[in-house]
Amino acid sequence: MLKLIRAGIFRYIHSTAFKVCSALALAVGFIFAHNIYKNVELDESWFFTATIIFASLIAINVGGEISKCAKNKITAGYSKTKIFLSELIVANLAILFFFVLFLLFSFVMNVRLLPHIPLKLALLYIFGFMCISVSLATVFFSITCIIPKKAVSAILCLVLLFSLYYTSDKVDYALEQPEFMQQATIDENGEWFKFEVENPEYIKEPLRSIYTFYSDINPFGQREKYETIIYPYLFDDARLELLRKNTQEQAANPEYLLEKLERNVSESEWEFIHRAPLYALAPVPVFTLAGWLVFRKKEFR
């Protein structure tokens, strides 16, 4: 299988799609790093762009390989299982390579931030995103194996991405809703009277556990949580101080927001960081098995 992997790497390096995607990964990585450098607050567009790059490359390279050139490998005496696994490994290596390219500028341009970030947090953060990358690559790879038409599988991968993004947004919004809302009214004496009412948008158990689980396994939900944890470490001291001051003066609920600007990782956040890679990798065996079952039954022309 090593021979197949070596040949696959050679093929990726020489493919136009790989070169274009590498350039895009560098470009998106540069914008991300530049935003940190300029102390601009991050949004999720970089993550979304990066995942679109993954989807495109896999759909083009794997789709082309499966529809056309896998017959060379079968004729050369390789079993479909070996071909499937080697292609999966090469696709994941390509995605990890993009990940390295993406981070390249972040390291080069923001070395000044490194002393603030605890090493363990930095390593687990990178490992967590690597797991998300591997998971997405595997999901896209399996979809491309299952759907015979390259264009259809590419569209399906993108639809899946948008669905994950949209549902993550909705689920996270629902989970953030407080259980009670404060309301106020004026009593007969003309005094303001404050009281709490149940929030109809609050998600109760058992649905809450399901929502939480979905948010944990959704790559966009994971990204959101990672970003919340790493957020105060991505600003230099002066900028962080300014943000704190502005929050104190302008925010309606400054305590909650100031807490977000504290450079400390809570116990529940550490727990998430340790657990997140497992959640991220959860779809890998499911999609790998589904893709393999379809691929091994596939008849080539």
């Binding site: 040949a7 050139c69 017959k71």
Partner: peptide, 23 residues
Amino acid sequence: IETPAIYADMTAEENLREKCLML
């Protein structure tokens, strides 16, 4: 078999190198 399975964005030599690596 039918149309040759070749990689369009590689040269003839690169196509052969890929096959040699695979074998």
